[in-house]
Design a protein around this nucleic acid. Structure first.
Lengths: 193, 193
DNA sequence: ACCGTAGGAGAACGGTCGTTTTCCGTCAAG
DNA sequence: CTTGACGGAAAACGACCGTTCTCCTACGGT
């Protein structure tokens, strides 16, 4: 068994980086651990990414795409309408219950690499994209002020993620869902056709 | 000028540790930087704390006490009643606008030191104490289900802190205040005397 | 058949880290 | 005056880090 061409090696490196960086933290994981987990040589990592910082950024960019795609898909399975608001928290509940759940990767790196402009930028971009997705969900909920609902959902989603992480309580998703339903009830007094 | 007795040296070390660990992250700051900032010798740090891990834990314990005391005091300045719920978010708004604001120290270490049992325990304890404080606030708000309100406030507070941190948006406090007011409006249909 | 390239294994590098140690100064109690 | 505890300055330590380098193997295109 020979080839292990370019894209395969790169994917193995990103897989190992994601697993280790997300589980243990970026600074706690050395490049030796990544290359060992990926089964490649140190030289190969630097041929593909040039530096550990670039590998970290690539890991974050790919996770950003994957995570938002996953949430978007979970929301799309629900019928259009206010139910998609609740579907967000149902999806979060499944995520929190996964064995390797360790909070939001972008919040973690923002706290860990407080002085890394690229890490801060990637985290900010990710949260902006999440906010945009929640705005879409809020726009379909039939409330008067979509922007206000999106802002409030953002706070509930972030609060649920950090609570599930720090307190180790996966039920935070259901409490967020309940709070979102209460907010929906209080806001749908308008545009009822 | 001579003395610099025991408690003064210890306080200087904790002050330096808090400033540096909170601003740059625990792993990014070496003990050399702490002792240089505190103006003490390396030996003195180890005479007082024994290890960097113990210094980190002492820093977190003191910050836990101080931060909760600060929030408790801010809440106490408001009239008893539902206004104390809003006072929580007013206090957060002031905190977010401070120059050195860098998110919740306990969320940061929970993400950074994912595999340190003591860091996880201190963070969990801190969030439990915050939850207890919010329960007190909710108990005075005159709603039917205090526990549910406290849970929802917890999500909004955590969400506001992480949003203000990652997105650099201090207005998250006002959006949290608005969401809390909406939740109060929807919940105070009972126990109106 | 040949050469260029990709990759693996591992050593080596300079730097930094947490921790310990040595040496010296200084104050307080006996 | 002496002793001992405390603290500062700095060196030393072993370990680990990110990065680069050398040597070797194996494949693909021409």
């Amino acid at each position: 068994m020979s080839p292990s061409r370019d894209p395969d090696v790169r994917r193995r490196l990103l897989d190992a980086a994601e697993r280790l960086f997300y589980e243990r933290g970026v600074q706690a994981v050395g490049v030796d651990a990544v290359v060992a987990d990926a089964g490649v040589a140190t030289k190969t990592l630097y041929a593909h990414f040039g530096s550990k910082n670039a590998l970290v950024e690539a890991y974050l960019r790919r996770r950003d795409q994957r995570w938002l795609g996953w949430l978007r898909g979970a929301v799309a399975t629900a019928e259009p309408g206010p139910g998609r608001v609740l579907a967000v928290f149902d999806a979060l509940g499944g995520w929190f219950a996964e064995p390797g759940f360790n909070g939001c990767a972008f919040v973690n790196v923002a706290g860990e690499l407080a002085h890394s402009p690229t890490a801060r930028a990637v985290a900010r971009d990710h949260k902006g994209a999440l906010r945009a997705l929640l705005h879409e969900v809020a726009a379909g909920a039939g409330v008067a002020d979509q922007a206000v609902l999106a802002d409030r959902l953002m706070l509930l989603v972030e609060g649920a993620i950090v609570t599930a992480h720090v307190e180790g309580d996966a039920q935070a998703a259901m409490r967020g869902r309940s709070a979102a339903a209460a907010l929906l009830d209080g806001m749908n007094t308008a545009v009822g056709e």
